[in-house]
């Protein structure tokens, strides 16, 4: 029974990747680039989901990890001529290091205190992008020179390359999420989320597990930050602001926390909610706000979370 579920789930996720691969040939230009962007942002949300959804760490500091990757790649490109490959690597390292450092301090706290500590660290990081304005150009940010935006000799300025890189990143993040959800570590993380004290009593090093989850989450966020900069060419302080900590939380909650595909569903939905509503009305945020309220009333655990509860218990 269980193994059939695993197969069904594996097939679904491979199927999603196959569909995303095929879509690039049929989508019109606009939706082609949108989907690339959504896949990149959804990767960020999947990284967030590992901390929040699977481990129960409600962080309001993920903009800091995203920005660590974005600025690591961007500044090294601008001042040291590092290209996209090096930039992505630097992004992962930056996200990983920052998450480890913040985690060592912030994981002394739990629950809402953790939320506030991560928020404060992220706010300090946001202000730092202004304080070091001489290099970062603060709010205005800077453009990554387009000649450096290439990977293995392929220019990321090309829509097709961009789509492939986005899809690869997305597939990797999905594989990591899927593996964690299915692994024994994933079960320990879930146990920590449900009852931290009991898990500790059972002899698990709760702090270490949480730190590893946060570091994986941070490294993914950093990678996505670097990828976003390299794919779309812009680095700026907006991406370090509180808004970019709240957005992945929102995407994950919309799609369904602790589901592998939920972050993608949530990101896609929010993107097109904003895009479509701002196409026909200037009161776009009103529409988005009402849609959020309406959706959460019908899908209190997010779309896939509620679906899993009611119809598809095999969803990872």
């Amino acid at each position: 029974m269980r193994s059939r579920w695993v197969n069904k789930a594996t097939a679904l996720h491979l199927g999603v990747i196959a569909v995303l691969f095929a879509l690039q040939f049929v989508l019109p230009d606009y939706h082609h680039v949108n989907l690339a962007r959504v896949m990149v942002l959804a990767s960020f949300a999947m990284g967030y989901n590992i901390a929040f959804g699977y481990t129960g760490l409600l962080s309001l500091g993920h903009a800091m990890f995203f920005a660590a990757g974005l600025y690591a790649a961007g500044l090294m490109a601008l001042f040291a001529g590092v290209g996209a490959g090096g930039g992505l690597l630097l992004g992962v390292i930056a996200g990983l290091v920052v998450a480890a450092a913040v985690g060592c301090l912030a994981l002394r706290t739990t629950g809402v205190s953790f939320m506030i500590v991560t928020l404060m660290f992220a706010q300090a990081a946001f202000l730092a992008t202004f304080y070091f304005g001489e290099y970062t150009r603060g709010d205005e940010g800077f453009v990554i020179p387009s000649n450096l935006r290439s990977l293995f000799g392929l220019s990321l300025v090309e829509p097709t390359t961009r789509y492939f890189v986005a899809l690869t990143l997305f597939s990797l993040c999905m594989a990591v999420s899927f593996a964690i959800a299915r692994s024994s570590m994933g079960r320990v993380l879930a146990a920590i989320r449900e009852n931290e004290e009991r898990t500790r009593m059972l002899g698990y090093n709760v702090f270490l597990y949480k730190l590893v989850a946060l570091v994986i989450s941070g490294a993914i966020s950093g990678a996505v930050g670097a990828a976003y900069g390299m794919l779309f060419g812009y680095v700026g302080a907006t991406f370090a602001s509180i808004q970019y900590s709240i957005l992945p939380l929102l995407w994950v909650l919309m799609g369904g926390a602790a589901t592998v595909l939920g972050p993608f569903v949530g990101t896609l939905l929010m993107f097109y909610l904003v895009d479509i509503s701002s196409g026909f009305t200037s009161a776009n945020m009103l529409i988005v706000g009402l849609a959020l309220i309406g959706l959460i009333l019908f899908f209190p655990k997010g779309i896939l979370g509620t679906l899993r509860e009611r119809a598809a218990p095999w969803l990872p």
Partner: peptide, 17 residues
């Protein structure tokens, strides 16, 4: 958790109005 989403929605609505 649902309340976070709902109140973000509420925030958007109030700001836009």
């Amino acid at each position: 958790e649902s309340t976070i989403v709902a109140t973000i929605g509420l925030l958007y609505v109030i700001e836009q109005v």
